[in-house]
């Protein structure tokens, strides 16, 4: 089976190009280059310190996700984002793997610490809906739905919450429908929450996880008027994943089952029976 990361790199690159030229997202080529270089360098350094082989695919995906979502006027902040993201993979670990989706961690860290970084969730607009759905769905097909369950459970829960809110407020259906068409929501659902390495190992665990992120995000976005509520919800829920895995064990996810070189996927070392921080 082909490594889904290659397709993901292609899809994220296409989205970045479409965002830059089709939607006028402020994607600056220089920032994108800085992000990619810093992500690769951080990955190389981290792997070296851990005595592991370097693989550019994961840091590339992280860098592309940051390019899509992180807005800043400063190349320094873009570099910091890449450093935080990839660095978090090596520094914040539990049960032998990283805890946070790297791009999610960097976004949340920057949003909390500087006013020079922001996420333009409204800028994806509605015209992008169809194309995002298409690429997102294509991505899921290739992944053989191994983590599609997270995306769909999340989207189903999120939709149910928005519909329930509209029903309670007596709002017309146009309002939840408009809220669901937010392009940033789909980017989040298809390309961030579905990260197989930071979601629970069992299907049941992933369902609990997806529902938890949706509920927490809903409270933040609609209860506390936090536009980036979903990013905070995912980062806040991620530390629960090791607990969920202990409660509902499942097999470790391997990116590429035939040529796996990752330390983190060594089965003996990461069996659910031996959890804990390393």
């Amino acid at each position: 089976m082909a490594d889904p990361r290659l397709l993901q790199i292609l899809v994220l690159s296409s989205l970045a190009l479409y965002g830059a030229f089709g939607l006028e997202l402020e994607i600056r080529p220089f920032h994108a280059a800085v992000t990619v270089v810093v992500a690769l360098l951080t990955e190389a350094a981290g792997r070296r310190l851990r005595g592991e082989a370097f693989d550019p695919r994961s840091p590339l995906i992280t860098a592309l996700s940051l390019t899509l979502l992180l807005r800043t006027a400063s190349p320094g902040v873009a570099a910091l984002g890449a450093l935080f993201a990839v660095g978090s993979k090596f520094l914040i670990r539990a049960r032998g793997g990283h805890v946070f989706n790297p791009a999610n961690f960097a976004l949340v860290a920057l949003l909390l610490t500087t006013d020079r970084a922001w996420v333009s969730s409204g800028q994806w607009g509605h015209v992008a809906l169809l194309s995002l759905l298409l690429v997102g769905a294509g991505q899921l097909v290739i992944q053989r739905a191994q983590r599609g369950d997270v995306t769909w459970t999340f989207l189903a829960t999120w939709s149910a919450l928005l519909l329930a809110r509209a029903a309670w407020l007596g709002d017309p259906l146009a309002i939840p429908w408009h809220q669901l068409q937010n392009g940033a929501l789909l980017v989040f659902a298809f390309f961030m929450i579905s990260d197989p390495r930071t979601t629970p190992r069992s299907r049941a665990g992933r369902s609990v996880f997806a529902v938890a992120v949706a509920v927490a995000g809903f409270v933040l976005v609609y209860g506390h008027y936090e536009p980036n509520g979903l990013l905070f919800a995912l980062a806040g829920t991620a530390p629960l994943v090791p607990l969920l895995d202990r409660w509902l064990p499942g097999p470790v996810y391997l990116w590429n089952r035939t040529t796996e070189t990752h330390h983190a996927t060594h089965p003996a070392r990461f069996s659910p029976a031996a959890p804990g921080l390393r």
Partner: peptide
């Protein structure tokens, strides 16, 4: 109008000073 703007306007401040 109602068809194109069903929801209230929500804003955020960015760090963009350009």
């Amino acid at each position: 109008d109602r068809d194109h703007f069903p929801e209230d306007l929500r804003f955020q401040e960015t760090g963009d000073r350009s």
